[in-house]
Amino acid sequence: MSLFHAVVWMDHQQAQVLQFDAESVQAQRVKAHSHHPRHHGTDTRALHVFFEQLVGALNGVQEVLLVGPAGAPEEFKTWVAHHQAALLPRLVGTEPADHPTEAQLVALARRYFLKYDRMAGTPTPM
């Protein structure tokens, strides 16, 4: 089941994808295959595989908010621009955050999309 909005909390080792509407939240976790922190020489190929899996998890979602620490959301957007350009317009924003709870992530995303959709002049299908 694909929902209209999603928020993705991510770092370089994992991503938590929360698709949601007004009544429900669907959670999915995507993990990188490397066990080493990126700054200790994580294989670039493993990071690309992780990003590819994350793209797959976002299939069908129309608007995605990326959240996370250490530049991971921006690095993912850059990778998407070079490898999965069709997804780029659906990545509507990024927000910094360390380790929020699932409820905090959904609340942040709902506030974000309410403002985003109002500014774009489109009704929010939440």
Rank of each mutant, 00 (worst) to 15 (best):
E102Y: 04
A72H: 01
T42V: 09
A120D: 05
H40I: 05
L108K: 03
V25M: 08
A107L: 03
D117L: 07
G121T: 01
F51H: 13
Y112E: 05
T94K: 04
H83I: 04
Q104I: 10
R90K: 09
T78I: 05
T78D: 13
A86C: 07
M126W: 11
P73F: 01
A32H: 04
G93E: 06
Q13L: 15
E95G: 02
R118Y: 01
A72E: 14
P96S: 13
Q104H: 12
L65W: 06
Y116P: 07
R90E: 03
A81E: 14
S24R: 09
V64W: 01
Y112V: 07
L87A: 08
T101N: 12
R118L: 14
H82I: 03
E95M: 14
E23F: 05
T78W: 01
F113K: 01
T42I: 06
V49R: 08
A6R: 01
E95I: 06
Q26P: 10
A97I: 06
Q19F: 00
V8C: 09
F4P: 01
W79Y: 09
R118I: 06
H33T: 11
G121V: 01
F76E: 12
P37R: 10
A86P: 00
A15N: 13
Q19T: 04
E74S: 10
A46W: 02
Y112W: 08
F113H: 06
A46G: 11
Q19H: 03
R38L: 11
Q104P: 07
V25E: 15
T78V: 08
V61E: 00
G71S: 03
Q14S: 11
R90V: 03
H35E: 09
M10V: 05
H39P: 07
T78N: 10
K31R: 10
S24F: 07
D43K: 04
V106H: 04
V64Q: 08
P96W: 06
P125F: 03
D117Q: 07
E102M: 12
V17P: 00
S34E: 15
P37I: 09
A109E: 03
H99A: 15
Q19D: 05
R29A: 09
H5V: 02
H82A: 14
S2G: 09
A46L: 13
A15M: 14
N59A: 15
L108G: 00
D98M: 11
T101S: 15
P89N: 08
T124G: 14
R118M: 08
D21N: 06
M10Y: 03
G60R: 03
Q16F: 11
H99W: 08
K115M: 08
R90C: 11
S2C: 09
T44K: 12
G41N: 05
V80Q: 00
H36K: 08
L3W: 02
L66S: 00
K77I: 05
F50W: 03
A86Q: 13
H12V: 02
Q53K: 11
L18E: 02
V92S: 12
H40A: 15
Q14A: 14
L47R: 04
V61W: 00
Q53L: 11
Q104R: 11
F51L: 07
L3Y: 06
V25F: 10
A72L: 00
A22N: 05
E102D: 15
